[in-house]
Write a protein that binds this DNA or RNA. Structure first.
Length: 600
RNA sequence: GGCCCCGUAGCUCAGUGGAUAGAGCAACAGCCUUCUAAGCUGUGGGUCACACGUUCGAAUCGUGUCGGGGUCACCA
């Protein structure tokens, strides 16, 4: 049980003994004591004053006295300022916590709760390479999955690949018309980039054709419909849904190129999935639903053959489910996939990591499920994250301002290489070790930069700031870890069991210094932090915590020597603090998908 | 226009009912013969968009105003 909870229940018990009133956790707060006051935890008394008809001074004194009397091992003393009862934990209670947990690599994680959760993330289109926005999505999805696991859930990571639809046909048409049978191999281009180039080519060509028609005097809306290349694309989508062999063959070939490219990027990012769904399969399920919905009257057909649902009673609009020509739209396969997920995996919750511009879309999806009487509607959760913007404004593919994922990774790894070479601390590393270190640091910086902000909020990507390796960054925390490992290497001879055993049996004679206290109390909070991050589906909670932990350790490091401590006891105590700090840093960083190096 | 999100230091962000609102970056001043200076210590920087309300107590909750963004496609 955490200190906060222990103190709260102790206070509830004492209050009942003193006044006979039964209080619950909601009736008063236990907070961390602010640094400018003496104490570790604070019972806020204000809300208790009225029901108990007491003054803050009297209540504080009575409660403080009884708490200390009943829990002499937990508390050392207390003070009262206004309505705040500040309690100081005893050195013994902190030392016990340290002794019991310092080498527990699972410290802070919660036991299994048998809840099955699926997290869907990344979900790329197969017509263009991954960009900065995908990176935020991927990092959030992966990290949230790990956090949920650490909190005791059984987690399935999944991805839905948008491998079909009009946009896919666009790059196919462009390749057919302009590529002259070029391939990623023949042009030495990564597959996803190769296909992406033809998607761009399509748009260039399309704009050109539209302009020509407009110049002939037709209105733009009409021109957009009439452009020959667009007509070809629409025909290709129809051919695709009808299974025309040469179209399917082309589609398979080009998607294959893209998947190869994606796999390379995922591998480098250290991202994985337990299950990959393909829209080309799920849209068929969706179509069956539309058929069923038509039969039972949930949906209706318009004159042109298109199928609709009316959601106006739920405050939403009429939504198209199937085009007049029978081809399906974005939402069609979503309906199919929702059901497949819940039935195959018996999920208790299904989390979708999707941008906040799709909030409306997800509301529509839920509403359709509700109308169709699906029981799992309320287990669908949209983790909507904010757009990543550039300092110059929004990313727009048409204006070429999209930050490409692969380019960005290269840049971050190059930067870490440059910093490392400038500092010259690892000159004895082999080529392979160096390469691994650069990846660890570069990716660490990038992941931390994107995860340190609350997912729900929009964020600004500042290139200069993102390659900064000082302060609130991944490398700062990695550096702290490497420093601790350095201490442990140098004091390695002390780590044998006899020494630890001696220390564990002997009481510590000297008092804990403030920084030693803050480190232990801060380490203790890790479990609460994991729970909070899991409840909020928010990796930034972990990022902020682990930064603060590293920061505190660095202050401790500057103030107190471990290897040359004042006494053998202090040395062992500080080694335990160091070991536990390193363990928690490693564990927390792992929840963010970030590796920590032994040296840097 | 309807619905939704956001507004905290020069910039990027924490803090979501408690004490004198915090970090990082940027600026300035110090600290390496002692465990890694990718570090540490200090200084300056705030009408928490604005107004009213609820409360013993509001950056945090409510209402309204202003400002920014998203969305309301036979795009995904």
């Amino acid at each position: 049980m955490s200190f906060t909870k222990t103190i709260q229940s102790a206070a509830i018990e004492c209050l009942e003994e003193l006044y006979g009133n039964k209080f619950s956790e909601k009736d008063f707060q236990v907070n961390e004591t602010k640094v400018e006051f003496k104490g570790d935890y604070t019972v806020v008394l204000f809300s208790l004053l009225k029901p108990l008809k007491e003054s803050p001074e009297n209540l504080g004194k009575k409660l403080g006295d009884l708490l200390i009397k009943k829990h002499a091992n937990l508390f050392s003393n207390y003070n009262i300022i206004k309505g705040f009862l500040n309690l100081s934990l005893s050195d013994d209670s902190l030392l016990n916590l340290l002794k019991e947990n310092y080498d527990d690599v699972c410290f802070g994680k919660n036991p299994l709760n048998h809840k099955k959760v699926m997290v869907e993330y990344s979900s790329p289109n197969t017509n263009k390479p991954l960009h900065l926005g995908h990176l935020r999505n991927i990092f959030i999805g992966w990290s949230v999955s790990e956090i949920l696991k650490a909190n005791g859930n059984e987690v399935y990571k999944s991805s839905i690949v948008n491998d079909r639809g009009i946009h896919i046909c666009k790059s196919m048409i462009a390749w057919q018309e302009f590529a002259k049978n070029a391939t990623p191999q023949s042009t030495n281009t990564k597959g996803d980039h190769f296909v992406g180039n033809y998607y761009v080519k399509f748009n260039d060509e399309y704009r050109k054709e539209v302009k020509e028609i407009v110049d002939e005097g037709k209105p733009e809306a009409e021109a957009e419909k009439e452009a020959p290349i667009m007509k070809k694309t629409q025909q290709m989508l129809l051919d695709w849904e009808n299974g025309k062999p040469e179209v399917i063959e082309l589609w398979n070939k080009m998607n294959g190129w893209v998947y190869k490219g994606f796999d390379e990027t995922y591998k480098r990012l250290g991202t994985d999935f337990d299950q990959t769904f393909y829209e080309s399969k799920t849209y068929i399920l969706g179509k069956e639903f539309v058929k069923k919905g038509l039969e039972d009257g949930s949906f209706y057909k318009k004159e042109d053959g298109s199928v609709w649902i009316d959601l106006s009673d739920a405050g939403l609009d009429e939504k198209l489910l199937l085009r007049g020509d029978g081809t399906s739209v974005y939402i069609t396969q979503d309906i199919g996939l929702v059901k497949q997920k819940f039935e195959e995996y018996q999920l208790d919750e299904s989390i979708y990591v999707i941008g906040d511009e799709q909030i409306y879309h997800m509301n529509v999806l839920k509403e359709i499920c509700r109308k169709l009487g699906m029981t799992f509607t309320d287990k669908i959760f949209h983790l909507s994250y904010g757009m990543v913007e550039l300092t110059t404004g929004k990313m727009k593919s048409r204006e070429g301002t999209v930050v490409d994922a692969d380019d960005l990774i290269d840049e971050m790894v190059d930067t870490s290489k440059k910093h490392t070479e400038d500092l010259g601390k690892v000159k004895d590393f082999t080529e392979v070790e160096l390469k691994e270190l650069y990846e660890t640091l570069g990716l660490g910086a990038m992941k931390f930069y994107l995860l340190r902000v609350d997912p729900k909020k929009r964020m600004v990507f500042n290139p200069e700031e993102s390659i900064d390796f000082h302060g609130f960054t991944g490398p700062f925390i990695q550096y702290t870890y490497a420093r601790i490992q350095s201490i442990l290497r140098k004091t390695g001879e002390l780590m044998n069991n006899d020494q630890w055993g001696m220390y564990n049996e002997k009481p510590l004679l000297e008092k804990l210094f403030p920084l030693e206290r803050s480190l232990i109390t801060f380490l203790e909070k890790y479990s609460n932090i994991i729970s909070q991050a899991a409840d909020e589906l928010n990796p930034s909670v972990i990022a902020n915590y682990v930064f603060h932990l590293a920061k505190t350790f660095n202050s401790f490091y500057a103030e107190h020597s471990v290897a040359n401590a004042e006494s053998e006891e202090k040395k062992l105590l500080r080694l335990q603090i160091s070991v536990m700090t390193a363990t928690v840093i490693k564990s927390a960083m792992q929840l963010l998908g970030i590796k920590v190096p032994e040296r840097m």
